[in-house]
């Protein structure tokens, strides 16, 4: 499991963030004291560190610079300072991303995931998701079942992936749109309907039509 270290002096935020990231399948550690911040981070040696700028005793940007001299771990600066200059400085000091508080939690999650994929070359994350009844190929956005391969469009792929992630849960249309908008596919209500219909037809080609169910007035559910 990949290890994330939270360097944040607000205790409550730290704990909530920890709960959230653990829920999303990461191993999470956090610093409780900030006397030897740089050494502590290097000792724990996480795959990724979420670093606040305003820390007691030390400046986050300085920490970032010092860590970068020694380690190649992913660094995401998370701060309430939102000027262009702070961002530029942090990136120059070797931070991989710069997110301002209050952050959009989905964006944070997406950046963590993409950064970990990039930094963790050894783990070679699989480009196939096994959805039991079929397999999703993340590299070329296709689905396959028993050797039969069907191509998905960008939006169909994103929708299916979201449904698989939330399997057996009712997913509202708003939630799906929210997820698509987050990845910059700004589709409207009608386009979503069209995409769902097409996705259903493609699933039918694999004899999986009954898998995607519509719950009137509530949304969709991907059955087991």
């Amino acid at each position: 499991m990949q290890k994330i270290l939270i360097v944040e002096d607000d205790e409550k935020l730290r704990n909530e963030l920890k709960i959230f990231l653990e829920k999303n399948g990461y191993e999470v550690e956090s610093l409780e004291t900030f006397n030897n911040t740089i050494e502590d981070i290097l000792n724990i040696n996480p795959d990724l560190v979420l670093l606040d700028i305003n820390l007691p005793n030390v400046d986050g940007q300085y920490v970032c610079k010092e860590i970068r001299k020694i380690s190649n771990m992913g660094i995401i600066i998370v701060t309430s300072r939102d000027s262009e200059i702070d961002e530029l400085l942090s990136i120059n000091y070797g931070a991989d991303h710069y997110i301002t508080k209050p952050y959009n939690i989905q964006i944070l999650l997406a950046k963590i995931a993409s950064l970990l994929r990039r930094t963790d070359l050894s783990a070679e994350t699989s480009d196939k998701i096994d959805a039991k009844d079929f397999i999703i190929n993340t590299s070329n956005s296709t689905i396959e079942k028993q050797g039969k391969v069907i191509e998905l469009t960008k939006n169909e792929y994103k929708i299916l992936k979201y449904l698989v992630q939330n399997r057996e849960k009712i997913v509202s249309r708003e939630e799906i749109m929210d997820c698509l908008w987050e990845t910059e596919s700004f589709i409207d209500d009608n386009t979503l309907t069209v995409n769902i219909t097409r996705l259903r037809n493609k699933l039918e080609e694999l004899n999986l039509k009954e898998l995607l169910e519509t719950r009137r007035g509530q949304g969709y559910i991907l059955r087991k």
């Binding site: 909530e16 309430s80 508080k101 209050p102």
Partner: peptide, 10 residues
Amino acid sequence: KMPIATSKMV
């Protein structure tokens, strides 16, 4: 922004 960020996490 701190308490807002924390609230959003909660």
